[in-house]
Nucleic acid binder design. Structure first.
Lengths: 276, 276
DNA sequence: TTGCTCCTCACGTCACGTGAGGTGGC
DNA sequence: TTGCTCCTCACGTCACGTGAGGTGGC
């Protein structure tokens, strides 16, 4: 053990505040090499300075304390680098998201008016290959991607034909609270019955019949609340909304083009059928 | 007043959770048009949907609720756009900072070893034009820029000559806690006495004498804790550190070049003079 | 009438910052 | 001995989320 210094000196060396250092001790992120039993004084080894600096860099990047601890505890360089890369990817995704939020805000403020048309449609029962689960809003995005990945893989493995655009049903709990049932599907031919591995989350089922008011959203999913708002306003003024999951159909989506401005998403809001 | 809907419908229209809407009501960010006196039920006008969407966009960009409220309350478009631009600039600065934190982290992990040399120096009294104030760590950056702006302006107005690099003194409270005295200065010729407007924060003074252990930091200020750490370690092992503000001198800084990798900052750590 | 929506507390979260009040070390 | 450093609570911050327990509306 090398030279030890007080918390104040260590603070000056690392530019971490004393309060921060005490907190890091409390959560066992950075533990002083020695604690005086009588006074409770913390003493740090100057060899801990580089560790403290690494911690500061990760916290500057908003990496949660728990993850920083994992990175520091990583048994080998490979594991450590993997954890770091994961976080850097997350940062990059966040930068992308911020960028598109800025764009989206500018669009909203410049108020590009798109004429919106609503269609009433009766959805028949259709056979689908589906995955349904309870998810939280945070994880919805990654769940969505993973679920469609699995669905498409199953289609390929079964030599099955997809007969329409992908879609999803989302329980209102997902909006009311932060968690609810979601189901994504690919429509399939009724005569074909793909072998679904039992025990997995894949299922072959029929989509329930429903009456929907439908509006098509153009552009990235970031902005989908704009169309939801317009459709909701329409329904309260011109139709009779009822309980039930909202229905989305991805006419053009990330599987078709990476240019998000080209995407088209049909949104179906359940209504009471007034025009038979 | 147009059509009103319940909080649940409004939630579905805007993709804001019911809890979030209740919170926005509580903090008077988005107030329902009507509240039932008996039941406490909140009713929203569908004309409030666009406002809610704007709020969501700003919150996605981490604009604090208080500022969102200001933007919405802005009396005219000019004021509003100004507030938005200010925030977008802050976002951009933050993106820059994140970017440089990533770079800095990579450098740290790749461990580019710079040989560090320490020099002991006696600083004489020198006359300076200075600004000293108590500042918090958050505002130190902007305070620093503003203070040097004012100093340089005063120099220009007085036809005064600057006889050395700019510098600053920083109380240890700035590191120990989050607030402390900071003083930035430009060295001037002793025979010249610039007219300092009274009542302002400018002052002509002599820098106190001091004994310092000095190390030069190369690169952006993001990384300055590396050199602080190295210097602190040196002082504990090879010298006798004493209380007193740390001294920084900006040999090459943002006034000289925007290429931060070229910057040179002398850091002076107060020591007890052992070698007279 | 049932079951769903809505309500109000009260408390938790995350990473610290802000005092208050008190002790220890040079 | 003074004055500075350090200590431990307890509470505050920000923008909500998580229940608990209860009422209202169709």
């Amino acid at each position: 053990m090398g030279d030890v210094v007080t918390i104040g000196d260590f603070s000056r060396m690392t530019h971490l505040s004393v309060k921060t250092l005490r907190y890091y001790h409390q959560v066992a992120l950075l533990v002083p090499v020695e604690i005086d039993a009588d006074s409770g004084y913390r003493y740090y080894d100057i060899a801990q300075v580089p560790t403290a600096q690494v911690i500061r860099r990760f916290r500057d990047l908003d990496m949660p304390v728990d993850e920083v601890r994992e990175v520091l505890a990583a048994p080998d360089v490979a594991t450590r680098n993997q954890l770091i890369s994961l976080h850097l990817e997350r940062i990059e995704r966040q930068l992308d998201q911020t960028q598109s939020a800025v764009t989206s805000l500018r669009n909203l403020l410049e108020g590009s008016e798109v004429p919106l048309t609503v269609e009433h449609r009766s959805m028949n029962q259709i056979p689908v290959l589906a995955i349904g689960e309870s998810v939280s809003r945070d994880e919805l995005g990654s769940w969505w991607s993973a679920a469609f990945g699995e669905l498409r893989q199953a289609i390929r493995n079964n030599d099955c034909v997809v007969v329409g655009p992908p879609g999803g049903l989302y329980e209102t709990d997902l909006f009311l609270h932060e968690r609810g049932d979601a189901l994504v599907y690919l429509p399939i031919q009724s005569e074909v019955n793909p072998a679904v591995p039992s025990g997995g989350r894949l299922q072959v089922m029929n989509l329930p019949e429903s009456e929907l008011a439908i509006m098509t959203h153009v552009g990235p999913h970031e902005d989908i609340d704009l169309t939801y708002g317009a459709l909701g306003s329409y329904v309260t003024t011109h139709a009779l909304g009822i309980e039930g999951p909202v229905h989305e159909r991805y006419l053009i989506c990330e599987f078709d083009t990476s240019d998000a401005s080209q995407w088209r998403t049909e949104i179906g809001w359940p209504i009471f059928q007034t025009v038979p």
